[in-house]
Amino acid sequence: MTTTTTAQPPTTEPAPRIHSLGRSIRLGLSRVGYELKVYARQGDSVFFTFLFPILMLSIFAVAFSNAGNIGAAPDGTGGITWAAFYLPGMVAAGMLLSGVQNLGVDIAGEKGDGTLKRLGGSPLPVISYFIGKIGMVLVSAVLQAALLLVVARFAFGVDLPTGPEKWLLFVWVFLLGVVTSCVLGIALSALPRSGKSATAVVIPIVLLLQFISGVYLQFSMLPEWLQNVASIFPLKWMAQGMRAVFLPESFAALEQTGDWNLPWVAIIMGVWFVVGLFLCRMTFRWIRKDS
């Protein structure tokens, strides 16, 4: 153990200002790489959050494989397979889980184990920390969705859209949905009192949302009042946006308004994004002062 000898002597005048937007973004990008490394090395969270939608799609596809097509004509022809029917919901569930569940539990855990306390004492801007988290979620969500589509296409023979306008739709619904999920996850992480209780707080919320938002249960089968309740929350709109991408136009008639209602998909997710940002700003603290 030798001592350092090259340190500069401390100066009495304050150091030059290092707090700038460019620096915040650069540190944010460096956090993305760091967060991805940490995330990929956590076996359990990768399994549950990353592979969950793929496992669920597989289960539904296999379980209903003998049930015939959905939306088939009376003579049994046409329609789509159950795998194709469940695909949009699973893409939406993946978007929600990657953001809300992953970050809600992850950040509450980092609060509990002292990670945030250390970061709070370092010159890392809060915005860089957020960029790191959101970037990590975006990368993992893109990989997850890609894997989900590959499994759907090649394991279950689901026809994927071919037109560029459908994929353009996919991109904006996906990005807006994931980023909205991220800010809601960050905001939600303020709720658990400890890292250990985070799963117990977050999982019931996302599970409930998945059941009422047309992920596991066909949305058009739900009673109207429950559809209206679900319409308050963003997952219903993520799923609807994804149905617009992946389901045939004939299925639009099953939606509440009889069409895909894409403007409202954008509006409701946008509102939740702003609400989430506001909540993050209001509730996020590196540590609970004076706890």
């Binding site: 150091a15 707090h19 490394k37 940490v38 090395r41 184990d113 002292g114």
Partner: peptide, 29 residues
């Protein structure tokens, strides 16, 4: 603020991070 924190070094009393990164990775970061 950030500029002030950049002039401090803080060694907290207890830390319990998960530690999924190597010593080199952590220090470099």
């Amino acid at each position: 603020g950030i500029d002030w924190k950049a002039r401090l070094g803080i060694v907290l009393q207890n830390t319990g991070e998960s530690g999924n990164v190597t010593v080199l990775e952590q220090l470099t970061h």
